[in-house]
Design a protein around this nucleic acid. Structure first.
Length: 876
DNA sequence: CAAGTGCGGC
DNA sequence: GATGCGCCGCACTTGA
């Protein structure tokens, strides 16, 4: 890796920070605005630049060697305000604590130190970045050195590369000193040539190159006045240039090696931040700053004999697991926090205690937890049914703001200012190879602290839910759904391992065929799975035109390869190879890895608290992306079979649920009408967009219309549509415009939703799910556009998620009521998959669509298609 | 171990 | 004028 040296002009940055920020002071009356600004810039540099080496240079001494040349150098400057002077010692301390080297040299300016070190570093092949507020330093810019000039405020910078200098000034970096020579510099009291400003200076330099050449060519310069001025100020111009020239061989006594950045001393940094009163900085270090930050003392009693008296009243409960994957239920222990006492119970004591198990299974004994599904599933694997949970902190936090981190109790506690009361799970267990169970005392404390936080946070979070009008979403939808999902996960999906093996073998053989062919066509062997190597083969060795580039090289994505297919035989071979390779590694090998050997089942985990829209996601394995689009991949579904002989797979899916939701939310008359009459929505759209009769709609028109419909649902951009249809952005925009003209209700909805979201700060779904969109007011076009599309899309996708979730609850309830053996196995966003005895299929065909279609009543009917078969493949 | 690329689903 | 489709998870390579 190339080494990177960041050089900071300390005085310049301190001045900038001081004048950019209001005159803050801490509780001891020390002014801190420059220190604060300096800290902000430092942290940003460390984060963004990730320097291997760093140094902050300061001016030292009232006079410098430049004063010998020109006694009035830097004359007329305002004295440094005392409010700023007093801050410099803290800035130096700050740097020391940060482990960043600093340097000053009597009679030299920071510029000269930077100029000298940057040159040394360049010779050592470092990448150099200079941070300053002073444009003088632009003269240091080179292919290896970038100079970032702070703009208004303190965090925004303009980074100057040689190209940028040329773009901005039309000259090269070594002509910057000539520019100063001609135009002078007011702030440093460098005179320059009177009457010549930036424009004229640049014009002259573009023509003649340097101050010397300008002065040699005065007779060629037009304008009498100008000639006179230059003639009169020859000496001054040359001196000015000299003054502006940064010394690149100053006698500094610090080596490059000494500037190596080794990281900060956290303890000292926290102490310094506390002294300065930098709360936001402390927060960034995950340090608790609130006044009530004193650690609550907790002395859990380790119970070896659980009695009913230990379990009285409302109890917060942690079921502590080691594995991230909760199937198999390797429980470590239980934490309990009741009204007064707190207890820790180890796994064996707990599960062997009749009293405790009875309490866990008692619906009337109310419990609060973090992640009910995790707890319930882990217990289910231990033959215990968790009941009576009326509060899940994880689900509550997710509903209140899905964007916030809720990975563990600590993360949620921090949201309410209790960050200091509990450690993160990763802190306690470690991560990666170092992950391990701590000693029982630490484990007990951690487990109980988490329960304590659940207890503490229950009321505040319930209040938030109430304020958001989300109590019903919480109590009547997500909480019960968690248990339904848990049942589905534990039920698992049965796999036909022979079929899987068979397919793996066949695909493996075909893969080696393709591999051989590809090597022959390429004339060499290489790793086809490496985009980098593939890029070299295709675009360098075989000379195909690179259509798109990625951050790191040529793009070899499928859409690029498809465009190249006609140019060389190898391309379609590679596409085939990729397709089969994906099937083999992700779906054959991937699934085999997670099958439970005793039962030949896979047990996915549905993440209920992750997506920003309210959808579920699925992991280990992800059963929401099993291939279906291509015939080859679809066959994978033949391996998904019922868990009993004489059973079937039954699948029911919503037809166009998102467009129906859109019709309802937007109250678009035409769209509502189309769905009421169950018209082919893509054909209907084509008729409207292309203004033709039904029988004039060509396949291509329908294809375009379909893409537009997709785009509308996904929060379309012209670019997005152009990509999916392979048309120009302009054409895509035209389609969108015509669509919106055709569906004025949708048009109005799109406009209104953005407006409303801007005012409220968030969008909601039919069941009051919420997503905040702060970036709607961003000045950054990209961020804002993205937020706008999200504002349009989330209510649609999210409401569809609400609907199917409600359907799942109702279906599960009905299956139990009707005493059916059928089991709900999977949800794939708009479809539900079941396994059932063949004898029940007839009932399901009636029950499931009916429940799904009436989960929520909209202005349009919901339509559900269904099918069944021996395997998932056949349920089509 | 993390980031980047690529690709499967709705 | 910009710059990239909405929501996910997993496999693989690469470079630390």
């Amino acid at each position: 890796m190339t080494k990177k040296l960041v050089l900071v002009d300390g005085n310049s940055i301190a001045y900038r920070a001081f004048f950019a920020l209001p005159l803050l002071s801490n509780d001891k009356g020390i002014h801190t605005n420059a220190i604060y600004g300096f800290t902000t810039i430092l942290t940003r540099i460390l984060e963004e630049e990730k320097p291997t080496h760093m140094l902050v240079a300061f001016d030292a001494g009232k006079t410098t060697f430049r004063h010998k040349t020109f006694t009035e150098y830097k004359g007329g400057r305002q004295k440094t305000p005392p409010e700023l002077s007093e801050q410099f010692s803290f800035i130096r301390e700050l740097l020391d604590v940060y482990g960043i080297s600093r340097y000053e040299l009597t009679n030299y300016e920071a510029d000269d130190i930077i100029g000298t070190l940057s040159l040394t570093a360049e010779k050592e092949d470092f990448e150099v970045k200079v941070i300053t507020g002073d444009k003088d330093l632009l003269q240091l810019v080179s292919p290896k050195t970038t100079v970032a000039i702070t703009k208004k405020g303190i965090t925004e910078v303009d980074a100057f590369t040689p190209e940028k200098i040329d773009e901005t000034y039309g000259i090269s970096s070594n002509q910057i000193i000539d520019m100063k020579g001609l135009m002078g510099d007011k702030s440093d009291n460098i005179p320059g040539v009177e009457g010549i400003g930036e424009k004229t200076a640049l014009k002259l330099l573009k023509e003649f190159g340097s101050v010397e050449e300008v002065l040699n060519s005065i007779d060629q310069i037009s304008g009498k006045k100008m000639k006179e001025r230059l003639e009169e100020n020859k000496e001054t111009a040359l001196m000015s240039k000299e003054l502006a020239t940064i010394m690149r061989d100053s006698p500094i006594e610090i080596s490059l090696a000494e500037t190596e950045y080794k990281g900060y001393d956290e303890e000292k940094l926290i102490a310094l931040y506390k002294e300065l009163g930098f709360k936001s900085m402390l927060e960034k270090l995950d340090v608790e700053v609130s006044e009530s930050a004193e650690l609550q003392e907790i002395h859990p009693t380790v119970l070896k004999d659980v009695k009913e008296e230990h379990l009285e009243g409302n109890v917060a409960l942690t079921v502590e697991l080691f594995d991230e994957n909760y199937h198999h239920g390797d429980i470590l222990g239980f934490g309990l926090v009741g009204e007064k006492e707190s207890y820790y119970i180890d796994r064996d004591t707990a599960l062997q205690s009749e009293v405790f198990v009875k309490w866990l299974e008692d619906e009337s004994k109310k419990k609060a937890v973090f992640d009910i599904k995790r707890a319930a599933v882990a217990l289910k694997w231990n033959h215990v049914e968790l009941r009576g949970v009326d509060f899940d902190l994880l689900i509550a936090a997710y509903l209140i703001d899905p964007a916030q981190s809720h990975e563990d109790v600590a993360a949620v506690a921090k949201l309410k200012g209790y960050g200091g009361q509990v450690q993160g799970d990763e802190e306690v267990y470690g991560k990666g190879a170092k992950r391990a169970v701590p000693n029982e005392e630490s484990l007990a404390e951690h487990t109980v602290r988490k329960a304590f936080m659940i207890k503490t946070l229950k009321e505040p979070f319930l209040k938030d839910l109430e304020e958001n009008n989300q109590l019903s979403l919480f109590n009547d939808l997500e909480m019960p759904l968690a248990l339904v999902l848990g049942e589905m996960e534990v039920q698992g999906v049965h796999m036909d391992m022979n079929r899987l093996e068979e397919m793996g073998k066949e695909i493996g053989e075909r893969l080696s065929e393709y591999e051989k062919n590809i090597y022959a066509l390429a004339g060499e062997e290489f790793n086809i799975n490496s985009p980098k190597q593939l890029g070299v083969v295709l675009f360098e060795n075989l000379g195909l035109p690179p259509i798109k580039k990625t951050k790191t090289g040529y793009s070899t994505s499928a859409d690029v390869l498809e465009k190249l297919a006609s140019k060389h035989e190898i391309v379609s071979e590679i596409l085939q190879y990729r397709q089969l390779g994906k099937l083999q590694s992700t779906y054959i090998e991937g699934l085999k890895k997670v099958v439970y050997k005793e039962t030949d089942k896979v047990h996915t985990r549905f993440n209920q608290t992750l997506t920003q829209t309210g959808r579920l996601s699925s992991t280990d394995p992800n059963l929401q992306n099993i291939p279906i689009r291509l015939e080859e991949g679809k066959k994978i579904r033949q391996a998904f079979v019922p868990s009993h002989e004489g059973w079937m797979i039954f699948a029911a899916d919503y037809s166009q649920i998102e467009l129906r939701v859109l019709a309802h939310i937007a109250q678009d008359k035409k769209l509502i009408n189309a769905f009421k009459h169950d018209l082919d929505i893509h054909t209907q759209t084509a008729m409207d967009v292309f203004k033709v009769e039904r029988d004039e709609v060509t396949d291509n028109m329908r294809r375009h219309a379909k893409a537009v419909n997709f785009g509308i649902v996904y929060g379309i951009s012209d670019y997005g549509l152009s990509q999916s249809l392979n048309i120009s952005r302009k054409e895509a925009q035209k389609f969108i415009d015509r669509y919106l003209e055709s569906f004025p209700g949708v048009q109005a909805y799109m406009n209104n939703i953005i407006q409303d979201a801007k005012e409220a700060g968030y969008v909601t779904t039919l069941l009051h799910r919420r997503r905040y969109l702060p970036e709607l007011t961003s000045r950054n076009f990209n961020l804002r556009s993205f937020a706008e599309r999200t504002a349009m899309n989330t209510p649609i996708q999210g409401s569809a998620a609400d609907i199917i979730k409600k359907a799942m609850l109702e279906v599960q309830k009905r299956l139990k009521e009707e005493e059916l053996e059928a089991k709900l196995l999977l949800q794939v966003h708009d479809e539900l998959i079941f396994e059932a005895p063949t004898s029940e299929i007839e009932k399901l065909q009636k029950l499931v669509p009916e429940v799904m279609e009436h989960a929520i009543e909209l202005s349009v009917p919901l339509k559900v298609d269904h099918a069944y078969g021996e395997t998932w493949f056949d349920a089509k």
